[in-house]
Design a protein around this nucleic acid. Structure first.
Lengths: 217, 217
DNA sequence: ATTAATTTTTAGACACATCTAAATTATAAA
DNA sequence: TTTATAATTTAGATGTGTCTAAAAATTAAT
């Protein structure tokens, strides 16, 4: 049985693998987990010993299938709880991440599966991220990052990557909510910002924002 | 901010104070928390230093008002979650205690209060135990322990103290469920067992069972 | 290809919550 | 009231997850 800390490492390694499509390095992991590189090294050794990941000194780390299964189970719980909080308890999408980071460590398969039933087997969470099913399978979201869009191209906003409270509040304030139709009007070369249109209103968004928005073309 | 372990000590001290109406002694607490007396001593020192309880060497321990407030907050969460699990997720009353012991440590006042609203401010949990409100106030259950009943006296079963899975399964099997009408038929002096009647069926229950059943006369 | 800068690991320490074994204090019995 | 028993505390140790500082390995730069 894994500790909360071990589960968090595994979850974060999984996320970084997905994002960078490469082995995960110590410093990046330390930054994400908000700890020191030396602590990460210690933990990686421990998880390697438990055969949840492949770790080679100085070469980075990669989950094996056992580790991946655990990551998906934690992610499943996280996203089901987020969905519960928004759909049943009337939380807004910017309030749920931190609470779900606690709830994701509750150990009860019965609870997770009953929650899934209660929510009617949701496929995505309030941020548009796919929810792994009871077997760890998740649907592939057919979404393209806004930075891949051409001028005059438009799409429907269906997934956001950054779940921080401030970022989501910013999006809400500007009507950038799941389901919104976004059209690219202009691109600025010097800072990679875009001018976009939503609900007939036009405004500029920075590269940082652009990189976290995923749309269906 | 308290650790899960600290919260569990405070919760248990509160429960023992209520049950024995006296200061709590080290060995009993150790037994309840399933740890050693020496560990209890260490923890009591720590909690005394945090000013959550009054501790005098060799003399036992008592929560102060700050500690009591924390106990009530944990109990509130525990019982709200139990109610949620039974009423919304279709758990049975014998399955909820262990899961609720995890959920009671989730830190989010917003979550607790929204859960309370969602459940429509329940006054008692699935075992008939009162749920403290947002201010820590709980209704006084007008229940009398079955061991106080005379022969031929009857009452409605409204509260059970022991929440262990096996005990609750035993009760269910014998139709001893919340709301059942129970009549005392006979008392055995030698082992303090009772013969009772429920739903026109008669059977014997041991002192151990009797002490955990509370009824409305 | 050697040096410099960066990344990662090791070594040794600490806080937390626990343990065992020994010492101390309180309580009950003779 | 002294002794025996029981309850409690202290002392010292352990495992987990973290830290700082120093050492080692890797990568980038000249």
């Amino acid at each position: 049985m894994l500790t909360k800390s071990e589960e968090n490492y595994i979850k974060e390694i999984y996320a970084l693998e997905q994002k960078h499509k490469a082995d995960v390095n110590t410093n990046l992991l330390a930054e994400k987990i908000e700890t020191k590189a030396s602590s990460v090294t210690d933990m990686l050794k421990k998880l390697a010993k438990k055969e949840l990941l492949i770790y080679q000194k100085y070469k980075g780390v990669k989950l094996n299938s056992k580790g991946e299964k655990i990551a998906l189970s934690v992610i499943r719980k996280h996203r089901l709880w987020e969905t519960f909080l928004v759909e049943k308890l009337d939380f807004s999408w910017d309030e749920v991440h931190k609470v779900a980071e606690q709830l994701e460590h509750i150990r009860s398969e019965k609870l997770t599966n009953k929650l899934d039933v209660y929510l009617n087997f949701p496929k995505v969470d309030p941020h548009g991220n796919p929810i792994p099913d009871v077997n760890g399978k998740l649907i592939i979201i057919d979404a393209v990052c806004l930075d891949q869009f051409e001028i005059e191209e438009e799409g429907i906003f269906i997934e956001v990557k950054d779940e921080s409270e401030n970022f989501l509040k910013y999006l809400t304030k500007n009507n950038i909510v799941i389901g919104a139709k976004i059209k690219v009007l202009e691109k600025e070369e010097f800072d990679n910002s875009f001018k976009i249109e939503i609900d007939r209103k036009q405004f500029n968004i920075s590269e940082n924002v652009i990189k976290n928005l995923y749309l269906k073309k």
